[in-house]
Amino acid sequence: MPDEMPISRRAFTVTTLAAGFALSTQPVAAETITTDAKDLTAGEVKIPVKDGTVPAYRAAPNKGGPFPTVLVVQEIFGVHEHIKDICRRLAKLGYLAIAPELYARQGDVSKLERDGIMKVVSKVPDSQVMGDLDATVAWAKKDGNGDTAKLGITGFCWGGRIVWLYAAHSKELKAGVAWYGRLTAAGKATELQPKFPIDLAGDLAAPVLGLYGEKDTGIPVKDVEAMRAALKKANKPSEIVLYPDAPHAFYADYRPSYKKDAAEDGWTRLQAWFKKNGVA
């Protein structure tokens, strides 16, 4: 019977990762950083989840292990070339870095303009994302040569919010680094995305370093200060850095928003945060 078909046969619209950069991010900026795969094992893998498989990009040193493991959570543009490059950057530092395609059931955003992307993203349940990240950790431990006792997560934009949520969800996570992820609902909480980081400040089970820009028009400074206050009230060892001249997406070297000084400082802080909190 058609209704008895396995959900994996009908619900996954993305079965392989997109090549290159997402259409809506073109043209790619001259400052774009390209990290080679020399001395790395890098490429696409399949992550078993409860209703099928999710494609993911992973990169790790090609010798040794098991390696400290970092989940890399995509921007709204999905797992395109920038996210893959970040995985390789982390692998060069000695990590197993893995980025699952978290919209796999809802749609391929790589060929869409922003309005179309937002329609797909709005259909992605937070509960699904948490489950897929858990499945990615399980894959890393079993098949990826990962040391998940040293587990970190980092994410950008859409993925920055997910970092905060996962730090409240996972009992295995050691630390997270959230790059300019939305902190408050701003009237946009939904049934599928019911809570935001500020709602979960007291529930964080792992410390999060938040990296934000003062000139981010989508995440006002008042939201950042409200999150700082919520963390202080909850007595949580998380921190937020606010860069005075940085806009949203200041780490995205392939976009005009890139701010080299803030990006490099944030990357240095990420490494120190992971080392301080048991991920390295």
Rank of each mutant, 00 (worst) to 15 (best):
Tyr254Ile: 03
Pro27Trp: 04
Lys50Cys: 10
Tyr95Phe: 15
Ile33Cys: 09
Glu239Asp: 14
Lys233Pro: 00
Ile98His: 02
Glu75His: 08
Lys275Asp: 13
Gln106Ala: 13
Gln193Leu: 12
Ile47Glu: 00
Glu191Pro: 02
Gly20His: 04
Asp216Tyr: 06
Thr136Cys: 09
Asp39Ser: 14
Val177Ser: 08
Arg182Met: 10
Gly155Trp: 03
Lys215Phe: 02
Pro2Arg: 13
Ala206Ile: 09
Asn235Tyr: 04
Asn145His: 10
Thr136Asn: 05
Ala149His: 11
Ala30Ser: 14
Leu102Thr: 04
Met5Val: 14
Lys142Gly: 00
Ala138Pro: 01
Lys123Glu: 15
Ala104Gly: 07
Gly210Met: 08
Ala29Tyr: 00
Val129Arg: 02
Ala252Ser: 13
Ala29Glu: 14
Thr136His: 01
Pro125Asp: 11
Ala11Leu: 09
Glu31Ile: 04
Trp164Cys: 07
Lys232Asp: 11
Leu133Met: 13
Phe196Met: 15
Asn62Cys: 09
Glu44Lys: 05
Thr53Gly: 01
Lys171Trp: 04
Ala263Arg: 00
Glu264Lys: 06
Asp223Trp: 01
Leu173Pro: 03
Asn145Gly: 07
Gln26Ala: 13
Trp158Asp: 05
Gly176Asp: 10
Ala185Glu: 03
Gly146Phe: 00
Glu172Met: 13
Ile83Asn: 01
Asn277Cys: 10
Leu183His: 05
Lys119Asp: 15
Gln106Arg: 12
Ala263Met: 04
Lys150Asn: 12
Leu96Met: 10
